[in-house]
């Protein structure tokens, strides 16, 4: 049995970074406890209770508070950014690292006891930028020092990378700590599992519709095999499944007759970049339509990005088809 600390030390993770990761995870443990213990002081099982009752906090607000309270005292953090309020919080002007997080991904799943999770990523701080500036967080995913997410399902799983492969841990209730389950995850290059919200196809450009049709056509389509579908409405749930047994997840650009094509739904800095870093560390691929996600330089913290992510060959097929569609359109 190997604890998280041991594995990270083996991977040569700097002590300051390790300490930040451990702090984030103590917050996640608390969220996990609230959920798994059925803590009626924090949870409401009545649908939409939070919407109607000001006294009741949403679980994402609870998670956000728990994480912020733990992180704002951390010496090695210069600033943190949370998706919850979109605010940058200055921590310590001399801190070496920056942390951005989404306290609770999959919020539409909370009241139905579906999959939810916490996503985070850590980068090096920039000396000449103030700890209050948004600019310090604006950098390509390629520069991520550590990224991970905790998935609160029947068990609590942690997926973590410090740039030396992606490893999966499980929360041991007995030890109150994360223990290594599988190291150096390799996502199979091919897959039979596909996840996309097909219900939204009327918002998609023609080339996306065409691409998705091949999954529906199954063995009679260009993929020449039958696929099965999943769509849980939780990015962390989908990515965890892809890491365990391969798969491809798509949330494309969307538009309508009246509205021009937008960048889909997912937040680039808080969600798309961390999971892309994790998946590429596990031999998978992640593209924001035509561009590799980790090459993108964000322009704002709230920016959204389309995403196709997962098994290498499927993503490559999308990118190639995309380029073909493009050159056909130019003719």
């Amino acid at each position: 049995m190997k604890f998280l600390d041991t594995k990270l030390s083996e991977d040569g993770c700097p002590a300051e970074l390790l300490s930040i990761i451990k702090t984030v995870l103590s917050g996640c443990k608390k969220v996990s406890n609230i959920l798994s213990s059925g803590d009626f002081n924090h949870l409401s099982f009545e649908p939409n209770a939070a919407k109607h009752d000001d006294e009741i906090q949403t679980l994402s607000a609870i998670s956000d508070n728990i994480l912020k309270n733990l992180l704002i005292g951390h010496t090695h953090l210069k600033a943190i950014a949370s998706k919850q309020d979109g605010q940058i919080t200055s921590v310590n002007e001399d801190g070496k690292y920056l942390l951005s997080f989404d306290p609770l991904d999959g919020t539409s799943n909370i009241d139905v006891n579906g999959l939810v999770g916490t996503i985070f990523s850590i980068t090096l701080s920039t000396d000449w930028l103030s700890s209050f500036s948004e600019k310090q967080f604006i950098k390509p995913g390629e520069l991520i020092q550590a990224a991970g997410f905790v998935l609160y399902g029947p068990t609590t799983s942690l997926v973590l990378t410090t740039g030396k492969g992606t490893h999966i841990y499980k929360l041991s209730r007995e030890y109150g700590d994360f223990v290594l389950l599988r190291d150096n995850i390799v996502i199979p290059k091919d897959t039979r599992e596909f996840s996309v919200n097909i219900g939204r196809q009327k918002y998609w450009p023609e080339r996306i519709k065409k691409f998705v049709t091949q999954f529906i056509d199954g063995r009679y389509g260009t993929g020449k095999k039958d696929y099965s579908l999943r769509y849980s409405g939780s990015l962390v749930g989908e990515i965890y499944r892809i890491l365990c047994r391969g798969g491809v997840f798509l949330y494309p650009q969307e538009g309508t007759r009246r509205h021009r094509l937008g960048n889909g739904k997912l937040r680039l800095v808080y969600k798309v970049m961390p999971v892309s870093f994790i998946v590429e560390q596990a031999n998978g691929l992640a593209f924001a339509d035509k561009m590799r996600v980790l090459d993108i330089l964000p322009t704002t913290m709230t920016q959204r990005a389309p995403l196709i992510i997962g098994s290498k060959h499927e993503v490559e097929r999308y990118v190639k088809a995309d380029k073909k569609g493009e050159s056909n359109a130019q003719k």
């Binding site: 959920l35 009626f40 099982f45 939810v116």
Partner: peptide
């Protein structure tokens, strides 16, 4: 349903009731 929390639905023919597991008391509430 075993998820992040454990919840249940039961009916004895007099409507359907939803429950959640209080895992400290080990009781469905």
């Amino acid at each position: 349903l075993y998820g992040a929390s454990t919840v249940a639905a039961i009916s004895v023919g007099k409507g359907t009731d939803l429950y959640a597991l209080d895992n400290i008391e080990k009781a469905f509430l």
